[in-house]
Every structure is written in C-alpha cells, then in structure tokens.
C-alpha cells in the first residue's frame, strides 16, 4: 500500500494509539480495515481505508496483521512531512516493512516492525438510524472537550432544534457551552449543522471524547451521531479514502 502523502497514515495512527495500543489490521483487495476496543470495552474504533484511496495498492491474499500502534507511531515520527509512504508485507513474513521516500527522491528510509499475534475480538455494530446527527468543525469539538474537562469528568450532550449544548459539573462548579445551528452557511467546514429527528440528552466520559479528538487532524469536520441509550458515534472522514469511527458507551443512571 503506497500513499503519496504519508502524513495521512501518521494522522490515523496518532488518532488511534491512545485508545488502543495494538490492533489487528485486516487487509484485503478492498483495502484495510481495523476494529478494536479499549481495554475497558467502553470505546471502540473502526477504521476503513479503501484501496482506491491509495496511490497504489495490491493484496494478493487476505491478511490479518497484528501491529503495535505505539511502535508504528514511533517509526512514523521519523517520517518527513512531505514523504511518501509504502507499507509492505511479504507472504509468510512475520514483519511489516515501512518505507519512506523524501519528496525529491534523495532520501529513502526503511524500517521493519515485527508483527504481533493478537486475538481479534470482533463486535457486530448494528446500522443505527440515529435520532440526531451533528456536523461541526473538529477543532471546535476538540476545544469543547478540553474546556468541559476543566469542570468535570462527564459531559452531558443535549440537542434541541436550535442547537447543541455541552455541559459538565464537578467539585469546582459547572459549565456549559451551547452551539447554535449555523444559518447562513458560507463555508461548510466551519458550520454547525444539526439534523434532528428527536431531541436527545446523553452523558459521556470526557476523557474518551478527548482521546477521539486525537484524530481531528484527519478532517476539518467531525460527525457526532446520537440516540437515546445508544453508543455515541464520532466520525472523522479520511478524504477520498474512508473514515475513522469511534463508538462510546454512554454513562447511565445508577
């Protein structure tokens, strides 16, 4: 699999590696997918990178590759910001080869990472017709998570047709941020767009939301999909290639 902009892959790894330290990458002719849960089974990440999004891609037979995201992250930190990236696995090999090429083709770096033997627990994620779908700038969402984490470790997300309200309370007191739905949309990327079938009010642990925001560099927008008593779906699209989707179980009344 070859990417002209290796930085995309680095952003994917940085978006995942706090939530899960290692994961099984499923490679097939259609591309690369990954599904993994955090250790407490409260959050899950689902990655899709379609083959047509790569500059070149070939997969002669399906492979499940156990990879340490922490190690992969360390190797990718050596990559130049404009480098292209090629990832290769030879048949019956126990390692993955990561090759980086500088833009002016004068520097070639090669790394080999040992593959891990991971037992992949797979969950069936039902297609959900969410009560509410919010689109907003990913930087805004990151900022809100950071601000709300000052006040408490849980965030209540309430949606109405006017907008969406994030609130948190704790020992210091309480705080809330309300975003009004954007009316005159000049730049889609900066708009707050809310499609609501019915109002929802759900509480989530802010530390997971903040971990999800590590994937914000992938996309200027984030999608939040909510339904009562249903895990939140938080989506960052990977341009012309796929997406990183996070799912987070809500906090419920004792």
């Amino acid at each position: 699999a070859r990417l002209l902009h290796g930085s995309i892959f680095a952003k994917v790894i940085e978006g995942l590696r706090e939530l899960v330290n290692e994961a099984t990458w499923e490679c097939s002719g259609n591309g690369i997918t990954l599904q993994a849960m955090d250790s407490s089974h409260v959050a899950l990440v689902s990655l899709v990178m379609r083959s047509e999004g790569f500059e070149s891609y070939r997969c002669d037979r399906n492979m499940s590759l156990g990879i340490s995201l922490v190690s992969m992250s360390k190797v990718l930190k050596t990559m130049g910001k404009d480098d292209s990236l090629t990832i290769r696995v030879n048949d019956d090999s126990d390692s993955i080869i990561i090759a980086m090429e500088s833009q002016n083709q004068d520097k070639f770096a090669d790394y080999e990472l040992r593959l891990m033997d991971l037992d992949s627990e797979h969950l069936g994620i039902p297609d959900t017709d969410y009560s509410c779908a919010i689109k907003m700038p990913s930087s805004e969402f990151s900022r809100i998570c950071r601000d709300m984490s000052i006040m408490g470790d849980s965030v209540l997300i309430c949606t109405t047709k006017e907008g969406v309200k994030f609130s948190a309370k704790g020992d210091l007191g309480q705080g809330s941020i309300r975003l009004v739905q954007t009316t005159n949309i000049e730049k889609e990327e900066e708009a707050v767009i809310i499609e609501m079938k019915e109002a929802v009010a759900l509480t989530f642990a802010v530390r997971y939301l903040s971990m999800f925001c590590k994937a914000a560099p992938l996309s200027p927008q984030v999608g939040l999909s909510l339904s009562e008593d249903t895990p939140l779906m938080c989506e960052f699209k990977i341009a012309e290639m796929g997406h990183v989707r996070f799912y987070l179980a809500p906090k419920i009344e004792d």
Binding site: S40, H41, A43, H122, G124, S154, P231, Y247, I252, E253
Partner: peptide, 13 residues
C-alpha cells in the same frame, strides 16, 4: 452515573 460497556449494545461476533 455508571459507565456502560459497549458489549451491552454491540454483539460479539
């Protein structure tokens, strides 16, 4: 409030 688990909502395959 208690933190729910994903396995309460998604079925292990």
């Amino acid at each position: 409030m208690a933190q729910a688990c994903l396995t309460q909502y998604f079925t292990p395959k």
